[in-house]
Amino acid sequence: MNRRDGNGTGNEDEEAFLPGPTVQRVSAEKHNPVGLIVAVITFYFIISLSVVFLNKFIMSGSDFPYALFVTWYQLVVALVLLLIWAQAGKSYAILSIIPPYEFDLRIAKKVAPLTFVYVMMLALNNLCLKYVEVTFYQVARSLSINFTILFTYMILGKTTSMPAIVACGIVFLGFAIGSYGEINFSWAGIFYGVGSSAFVALYGIYVQKTLAAVDNNQWRLLHYNTTLAIIFLFPLVLFSGELSEILATKTEILSDMGFWALMTLTGVTGFGINIAMFLQVKYTSALTNTICGTAKACVQTVMAAMIFRNPISELNGLGILLALFGSGYYGWVRYKERVGK
């Protein structure tokens, strides 16, 4: 998934809770102050890493393993922030990047297929994070690149260059070796990771197909996708039994303001990833985005090993390195192809 061209590295923005900005580069990196670029990259790192670690902590460290409800609540928080931001933009020019909230049923029907893909992507993503260690999380969801190439050919009829296919081969090899070497292996985690990867790839394609319905305005799309996702996801929360189990067995947690503050914070970071990606696209280069995505994945793996003390076998470590290298190489290939056009 890439919110700029539909062919991303597969690691830089998959944690986002909302359909992030699909904007064209409006300024070259060399025209912006170094301090601004560093600040934008730092903000992206902090927000992106926070999304993953906060979600993992909620679903493992807080004895609240309800991935679907967690996702739904975070979407509600994100919608509230979207409404507040859009309203504030009427009075403060610096916040005017998000237009006033709108919801037209005719447009909503056109956005609905994208939202279905989006809901499946989010649900499977958090379910994957629930069952796998954070050190293995990137590997479990690394096949989004492979699915992107497959779906781009099947849906859009576009072929892929041989270097990009080689990169996908490296990623798949890393996935296979990493899965075999994972000490705390989980078939459920693998299933949800592969499923999430497939919907990540579909999402990147459907974003491009759906933007025309909102006059290519990514923030208007944000309004519809977030609202519809809340509506679509709630039945899943209800029929999965999560809501009834929460109300029956988690009464102490439900009255814990600290827990709700943490849940709300994850919603804030989920919304913040969209702002971070918007700033990166606007103020940095495509190459910087590629490097940042790969670097962030490396930092995420190292931090996970330090914070959660997840055991990493030699094969698992090799698989992680191959998956990260393949993702980074794929991003580099795509960057060179864009520059060469």
Rank of each mutant, 00 (worst) to 15 (best):
C298W: 15
R334N: 06
N310M: 07
V281P: 01
E245C: 04
S255G: 15
F191T: 14
E242R: 08
L36E: 10
S240R: 12
S142L: 06
H31E: 13
I246G: 12
A176S: 13
Y118K: 03
K90H: 07
A229F: 10
T290P: 00
L321F: 14
Q87E: 10
H31N: 13
Y329Q: 00
L124E: 01
G241Q: 11
G10Q: 02
T266R: 09
I230T: 06
I307Q: 04
S96L: 10
E242D: 05
I253P: 01
L75I: 09
G35A: 11
A229Q: 05
G8C: 08
T22H: 14
I37S: 01
A261T: 15
H223W: 06
M306V: 15
S144I: 12
G317T: 01
T227N: 04
T152C: 10
F147C: 06
L150V: 12
V166S: 06
V51M: 13
K209Y: 03
T160D: 00
V134C: 03
I312E: 01
N184P: 07
L143E: 02
Q87R: 07
K250R: 10
S327R: 02
G61W: 00
E337V: 09
N146M: 06
V51C: 11
K341F: 09
F325M: 11
W187H: 11
N225T: 15
S60L: 08
I41S: 12
A164T: 08
P113T: 10
Q74V: 09
F271G: 02
Y224C: 08
